[in-house]
């Protein structure tokens, strides 16, 4: 896939900017569920950055990082939901 070098930089900085904007919800979110959704959103955006850099550099080792990161991030969110998922504990 060939794009102009400037557009790679634009995609990277755009996704990083949306990550910074999603951090606001992580900080001010009143309930735990808001913060959990914000963590998941940031994880999705970081995953997009990882995959895009892997496509740009044309190295398949970079895709392994994205794969492992996605699996273990999902396990982390699952742990929070399993142990603190009941209604009276989510504040």
């Amino acid at each position: 896939m060939d794009l102009a070098p400037l557009s790679w930089d634009f995609i990277n900085y755009f996704l990083l900017g949306t990550t910074v904007v999603s951090t606001v919800r992580l900080i001010i979110g009143p309930t735990l569920a808001d913060r959990l959704v914000a963590v998941n959103l940031i994880a999705a955006q970081v995953l997009a950055i990882l995959v895009i850099v892997a496509v740009k550099e044309k190295l398949s080792v970079y895709l392994d990082v994205a794969l492992v990161y996605d699996i273990f991030g999902f396990i982390g969110v699952l742990a929070v939901v399993k142990y603190f998922g009941r209604k009276e504990e989510i504040r």
Binding site: V46, L50, Y69
Partner: peptide, 30 residues
């Protein structure tokens, strides 16, 4: 992990993603 990845160290980023994000979060929650 994204910073290590950006600095061209994908193996360090792999370990950081596995241990930092998954295992330590699970351990702290438990």
């Amino acid at each position: 992990a994204l910073l290590f990845f950006h600095l061209h160290a994908p193996d360090v980023a792999l370990t950081e993603a596995a241990v930092g994000t998954g295992l330590s979060t699970f351990l702290y929650i438990w």
